[in-house]
């Protein structure tokens, strides 16, 4: 029982952390190498792609998707997709995909003469699933060492922590005030039933034994 409880708790927290890590924005300092557009047929990984741009046809099985190729400061490549989130989830309300593609294209550079940019994105890059993080915005910076403080993430996580703590505290108070006394009463009821049951059994056994010793 101990392991089952901890399995649930750990699974719950893993899911919560994964959800926030996927949905909250992150910032990468990168050098944009190229931008392109590719036809994607949505298969098993379709939940990691957003909907079509607002105004376009819905529910198509494939679509042209913008991509941005970049190299981060450790010289490893990172490919971002560039899609509208529209009115759907996550609530970034991103409509300016084509504009962003133009801005990103404008910041392309070569390794010899790099133009560094900060790319704000959400989502995961997983080669095995062929999923890409979604770029939200791009802005040019002077050099690869820029100090970025994720203010929005700090605010959101603080609010979530405060709300969860408030709910948890109220749940504990409610439990102590209402549920625990009731459970004690039920426990006492079980004890009393158990006593009377063993009394009954005692009597039956004595009567049975009275037949044995003949």
């Amino acid at each position: 029982m101990f392991y089952v409880k901890w399995a649930f708790v750990i699974t719950f927290w893993v899911l919560v952390v994964a959800f926030f890590h996927y949905t909250l924005p992150q910032h990468d300092v990168a050098r944009i190498a190229d931008t392109y557009e590719k036809r994607i047929d949505f298969g098993e990984n379709s939940i990691f792609w957003t909907n079509q741009g607002t105004g376009d046809a819905e529910g198509t099985v494939n679509r042209d998707v913008f991509f941005i190729q970049a190299f981060r400061t450790d010289d490893r490549p990172m490919i971002y997709r560039n899609e509208d989130t529209g009115w759907g989830w996550p609530p970034y309300f991103k409509f300016d995909t084509a504009n962003l593609q133009a801005e990103a294209n404008n910041l392309r550079s070569t390794p010899n003469d790099p133009q560094w940019a900060v790319i704000t994105h959400y989502g995961w890059r997983n080669e095995f699933l062929s999923i890409y993080p979604n770029a939200i915005s791009v802005r040019a910076v002077d050099g690869p060492d820029v100090r970025i403080i994720p203010w929005l993430n700090i605010v959101i996580l603080t609010i979530v922590a405060a709300v969860s703590w408030a709910i948890w505290v109220r749940w504990r108070r409610f439990r102590a005030a209402r549920i625990d006394p009731m459970l004690e009463d039920i426990g006492e009821g079980f004890d009393a039933a158990g006593d009377s049951f063993s009394d009954t059994r005692g009597r039956f056994r004595r009567w049975r034994d009275s037949w044995k010793r003949k």
């Binding site: 309300f93 991103k94 409509f95 300016d96 504009n99 915005s137």
Partner: peptide, 12 residues
């Protein structure tokens, strides 16, 4: 909130 997000995301 939604209006502010739309402004910040799309119009910088």
């Amino acid at each position: 909130t939604v209006t502010i997000i739309i402004y910040l995301t799309n119009f910088h």
